[in-house]
Each structure stands twice: as structure tokens, then as C-alpha cells.
Design a protein around this nucleic acid. Structure first.
Length: 274
DNA sequence: AGTGCGACCCGAACGC
DNA sequence: TGCGTTCGGGTCGCAC
């Protein structure tokens, strides 16, 4: 499931392949993917060109002539590059055909991903973008900022790390890994967190995301990047999906629980869970 | 206002 | 074996 590191990997791999290609045609097979007006989408995309790909949190931002195409992959969204004459697969929902007869195809098994087309000057009017918090790799992420965001919340830390308005870009995998690295109890409420724990969360999130980006993300279940590269971060996971295995630090068996409906993996000793 | 939870999806994993 | 059921994952929107 794409988190910040996966989206960054898609951005980098896609960038080398599609920039400055002219779009000849766009085929929308599953229209619900598009949140904005469909006719406008078709009209604007035709004849347009991808000039750059940016990323804000888990959002991919394709730069066009006068617009941005905002794309959120949610759990299973992927982009594949193929020749236009290849058959259209079951889960390919949107096809951009370039003038050189190659395609960029949006593939999404669960149809959860979404796209929106906005004028460049309106990018930050888009709700999802507007409310993004600070990214783990941004030096502006400080322990004081986190403490301030957490201190009045009667919400478990696991849930707070998934809140994109606080830290932008963490998903279920890295939230578990960050809490383990920071030795913070995932069940602990925001209001009970200390400034020094915030400092640990800050540095742990940066360390883990940098490492994950370097390794091309994590592949769990169905996720592959646009070039089919398998994320190598999987081998560095300490707790996520490690239920029943001994903790890499203390050998205590890793446990699994639900926090706010999300599966959560932790070491009860290292993370001081009773 | 703050918090919790179902809906959106559908393939895989699970249970009988 | 084969069927039905549950699960998961990010985000939104609604209910309390």
C-alpha cells in the first residue's frame, strides 16, 4: 500500500519515462476515479504534456501546461507504461495515450484511488492537499510542533501518526515502524505523550522514511512501483506483519492488535505496553 | 468540537 | 473441494 516512500518511488521511476510526452488521447474506463468534471478532464488532457511530477504527502502531482493532475493511489493504485496496442487488463481504469503510441495506464484492483484536475493556481484549494501536515523528511518537523498537535488529543498515538494533517505521508506500515523505533506505546493517548517522546518520533519518522525511500519502498501484498520494482524495505521491517516473530532487539514475541480498526504490530517490552 | 466508525472496493485468506 | 465470510487499507463523511 503506497505510503510516502512508495509514492516517491513511483514519482522517480515515472518521471524519466513520461516527461515531455504529448497526450494524444485519454480513455476513461472507470469514471469514478475522476473527482472533477469528466468533460473538462478529457478536454484538458487531450494535447497536453506532462512537464514534471511532484509529490505532496501521498499525493502525486502531475504538472501539465496550465493544470495539475492530482493523483492519490490509496491502497493499490499503480501506473504502468506499455505500448498502446497491448490489450487492456481488467483493472486498468484510465489510459493516457501519448503521440508515440505508448500508454501510461492507471491500474487499481480495488478502485480506491482518486484523481482530480485543478488549475495550477488552485492546487492548494484542493482539500486533500490543503490540509497536509509536515512531512517526516522536512526539517520543519519539530518536537514542539508534534507535542502541540498531540497534547490535547484523547486518541491513541497509532491513530495520530496516521493523521495526515499532523505528519504527512505515514501509512499503516511506517506508523508501526516509527512507534517501534521511537519506543512509543501505540495505545498511549496523545495527551499523555512527553516532549522527549515527540523528539524520538520526529527522528524515527525521518530515519525510517529516508531509509524506505532509499530502498524503493516496501512491498506487501500487491504493491509494485510503476516499473515493477520490488521494494526492498520489507526486509527492514521490525514489527509490521511480524506477529509471532521475536523482537529484533529483545526477542519478545511481536504482537498484533487493532487500534481504531487498523491492525497494529508492536513489541510490548520495547514499547512499554502493559 | 472532538472522536468513532461505516462506506467505498474486491481479491485473498480464512473457516466450515 | 467448495462454498460463504472476513479482512485490509486511506480517506471522507456522518453520527454521537
Amino acid at each position: 500500500m503506497p505510503e510516502i516512500a512508495e509514492v516517491e518511488t513511483v514519482r522517480n521511476t515515472l518521471k524519466n519515462k513520461i516527461l515531455n510526452k504529448k497526450i494524444k488521447e485519454v480513455k476513461i474506463i472507470y469514471p469514478k476515479i475522476i473527482e472533477t468534471n469528466l468533460d473538462e478532464f478529457k478536454k484538458v488532457m487531450k494535447g497536453n504534456t506532462f512537464h514534471d511530477i511532484k509529490r505532496i504527502g501521498k499525493y502525486l502531482i502531475f504538472e501539465l501546461d496550465n493544470h495539475y493532475l492530482i493523483s492519490h493511489l490509496r491502497m493499490e493504485g499503480k501506473y504502468f507504461l506499455k505500448n498502446s496496442n497491448e490489450e487492456i487488463l481488467k483493472h486498468e481504469h484510465l489510459i493516457f495515450t501519448f503521440t508515440d503510441n505508448t500508454d501510461m495506464r492507471y491500474h487499481d484492483t480495488r478502485k480506491f484511488g482518486r484523481m482530480a484536475l485543478v488549475l495550477k493556481e488552485n492546487l492548494y484549494d484542493y482539500e486533500g492537499i490543503k490540509k497536509q501536515g509536515i512531512e517526516p523528511i522536512d526539517d520543519k518537523l519539530s518536537k514542539e510542533y508534534l507535542y502541540d498537535k498531540f497534547k490535547n488529543k484523547s486518541i491513541p498515538m497509532k491513530t495520530l501518526l496516521l493523521d495526515q494533517t499532523i505528519i504527512s505521508g505515514l501509512g499503516n506500515i511506517y506508523a508501526d515502524e516509527v512507534l517501534f523505533e521511537a519506543q512509543v506505546n501505540p495505545f498511549k493517548l496523545g495527551k499523555d505523550i512527553t516532549l522527549s517522546e515527540c523528539a524520538k518520533i520526529k527522528s524515527a519518522s525521518k530515519k525510517i522514511i529516508l531509509k524506505a525511500i532509499e530502498e524503493g519502498g516496501t512491498t506487501i501484498r500487491s504493491y509494485t512501483s510503476s516499473l515493477g520494482v520490488t521494494g526492498r524495505f520489507q526486509q527492514y521491517l521490525c514489527v509490521h506483519k511480524q506477529e509471532g516473530k521475536p523482537c529484533k532487539i529483545c526477542k519478545t514475541i511481536i504482537k498484533k492488535a487493532k487500534v481504531n480498526g487498523r491492525s497494529t504490530y508492536y513489541c510490548e517490552k520495547c514499547q512499554n505496553v502493559k
